[in-house]
Design a protein around this nucleic acid. Structure first.
Length: 583
RNA sequence: GUCCCCGUAGCUCAGCAGGAUAGAGCAACGGAUUCCUAAUCCGUAGGCCGUGGGUUCGAAUCCCGCCGGGGACGCCA
């Protein structure tokens, strides 16, 4: 539990005491009372808006109410100073002993510091990557893959039940094209000269081994059969091969999913028909004709009556077709069934991590989820904006020649898994991002991956030196936690501990907001503060971590370094970046 | 034409459920290396938070209009 929650509880108690004493009305809504870090640390260690929130319902002046609350809080032995500021903020300064206790607590918690035990919040399903199984992942998939994965890890750490899911679009026309492309490679593997790959088929080299594998599996038995006969076989075989490829790429990024869902299986199970009926029962299906889209005017547009879902009733701009002109389901219809399936498997909170090109898809899918779950499920869509690939500030040339794209594997090979993961999570998802190969390889503060890893390595370095020079000082967390921490009395020390102690709050708020990028910023700030503290020891010897002949002091300062190392490692673990011990 | 996202320091970005004098990094300028990794750190300078209204005790944050950039727009997935 975060010390903010602890102080929050004390503030609530103070409010209760005040209402007991008749100072304010009972039963006021306290849900918006917050205990937070003040904007400016000079104001104090923690701050609450309680008086400002309660002033209006209590019919009192915020500052007067604040004064009354201060009187209640003043007796708290852990609070060194409580004061009213500005429009009615209550600022509190914590006693050093209370702050040091936070360090002891976090050392004892070890790798679980900030972890929230499983609670009864609604289970969450995070769907991410879900690339079409028509080839290896390319660079553009990296962002969504990392955002989804870190979000899932974060939610699990924050006590939510999480399912990590990948939706395989193995039912559409694309996979038929894939099968035909693979069949061509199969004939090639049988010795035929296939010449140029015809336009419309996938030309990528990655299908060559699939062709050979098809020969191993089927010999030449497929060659002279009708397409209707070989297509299902080749399609299924090739999809499996592509998914194996994709899984390898993801594993290279440290990503695994709990569920790989299949669109084809879903359709064949009749789930789409069931979803359709569920909407129909609610009177949300009708036959109608849509207006042509303005501005873009497709040449082949002709008005046609269609089977439509009343998405407009749930906030969408137009009603959406569920059936194609040939009577088969649209992709949207299948996707409704898929989201319904996720909901029925037990996740009322659905998160889709999608690329920027899916922005126009959000409203209709949210409408569908709300409709089909009768308001019980909620869909949050994280749209990941474009990543521009640069090298030394210059755009990386992507050849127009089909099949020649930068793969995810290329990127990992160039800069490493850690850099890819950190960079992809270091921006808000809805902000476009530059990914510069040169910057990410740099070993300087400009490269946040390096900067954070360096802080961890530095902390490890101190602990290594300490083990050699102070062999009699145990570095076991329990021993460091039990040490006399009073020598940590410099404002910089206490500020460092408060930074560490705000980690649980960072986890909690980032998880609640579904914003994993905050972890990257937290780690960067933490690393920065540690580098600063380190360098302070150069000017002021009493701030050095290892002090010969002063075991008591050294032990306390080692506890601080161990705390920094621990929190850095936990955070890097969630992001999926290796906490390197030496650089 | 409609919808979505973005617009904060010269550049790249934070700003957590509206709150107290708006924060980092880079670039610029000036400093710190007998000592735990100077791959780091310290200091200076730099902003009518795109713009015009509105909501209220209070707006970078919420609402509306406009401007600029990006993305999407039956029967593709």
């Amino acid at each position: 539990m975060s010390f903010y929650s602890d102080i929050h509880a004390r503030v609530i108690r103070a409010i209760d005491a005040l209402s007991e004493a008749g100072g304010i009305a009972r039963g006021l809504d306290l849900s918006r009372v917050a205990v937070e870090p003040p904007r400016d640390p000079a104001h104090g260690d923690v701050s609450t808006n309680a008086a400002m929130i309660l002033a209006r319902p209590a019919g009192q002046n915020p500052r007067a109410l604040a004064e009354a609350l201060v009187a209640q809080l003043a007796g708290d032995p852990d609070l060194a100073e409580v004061s009213v500021a500005g429009p009615g903020f209550i600022n509190m300064r914590l006693r050093p002993g209370y702050i040091r206790q936070q360090l002891a607590d976090l050392l004892i918690a070890g790798p679980d510091y900030g972890r929230i035990p499983p609670h009864d919040a609604a289970p969450v399903n995070v769907e991410y990557v879900s690339a079409n199984p028509t080839g290896p992942l390319h660079a553009a998939h990296a962002r969504g893959a990392v955002v989804g994965d870190v979000l899932a890890r974060l939610l699990a750490f924050a006590g939510y039940r999480v399912t990590k899911e990948y939706y395989t679009n193995d039912a559409g026309a694309q996979v038929d094209t894939l099968a035909r492309s693979a069949f061509l490679r199969y004939r090639e593997a049988l010795g035929e000269d296939i010449g140029e790959i015809p336009p419309g088929l996938y030309p990528g080299d990655y299908l060559v081994p699939v062709g050979r594998a098809l020969v191993e599996r089927y010999g030449d038995s497929l060659r002279d059969r009708d397409e209707a006969e070989w297509l299902p076989l080749v399609r299924s075989f090739t999809i499996d091969a592509m998914m194996a490829l994709i899984r390898e790429d993801l594993e290279a990024l440290g990503i695994t999913h709990d569920v790989i869902a299949s669109e084809r299986a879903l359709v064949e199970s009749g789930a789409v028909d069931a979803a359709y009926r569920a909407l129909e029962e609610q009177g949300l299906i009708y036959i109608g004709t849509l207006d042509p889209p303005k501005g873009k005017a497709p040449e082949d547009w002709e008005p046609r009556p269609q089977t439509l879902f009343r998405a407009t009733r749930f906030g969408d701009d137009v009603d959406r077709p569920l059936k194609k002109s040939d009577g088969s389901w649209t992709y949207f219809a299948n996707d409704i069934a898929y989201h319904y399936d996720k909901f029925r498997r037990g996740s009322p909170v659905l998160i889709d991590v999608l690329g920027a090109d899916h922005g126009g898809y959000v409203k209709r899918m949210q409408a569908a989820v709300t409709a089909i779950s009768r308001g019980e499920a909620r869909l949050d869509v994280k749209i990941c904006q474009i990543v521009r690939l640069l090298d030394g500030g210059q755009p990386v040339r992507m050849s127009k020649r089909a099949g020649n794209f930068i793969t995810l594997r290329d990127v990992i090979d160039a800069v490493g898994k850690d850099a890819v993961r950190y960079m992809m999570i270091s921006r808000r998802n809805d902000q476009t991002m530059d990914f510069d190969f040169q910057q990410v390889r740099e070993q300087s503060r400009e490269n946040p991956v390096f900067y954070v890893q360096y802080a961890h390595a530095r902390a490890c370095s101190v602990l290594r030196h300490a083990a050699a020079e102070f062999p009699h000082i145990s570095q076991a967390p329990a021993d460091l936690a039990a040490a006399d921490l009073d020598p940590l009395d410099d404002p910089a020390d206490l500020a460092m501990i408060l930074r560490l102690a705000s980690w649980p709050r960072a986890v909690e708020t980032a998880a609640a907001a579904h914003e994993p990028h905050r972890l990257a910023f937290f780690l960067y700030d933490l690393a920065s503060e540690f580098h600063t503290l380190w360098n302070k020891g150069r000017d002021e010897s009493h701030l050095r971590f290892l002090v010969q002949g002063e075991d008591r002091k050294t032990r306390a300062r080692l506890a601080l370094v161990a705390g920094v190392r621990s929190v850095l490692a936990i955070g890097m673990g969630l992001i999926g970046v290796t906490p390197v011990e030496e650089m």
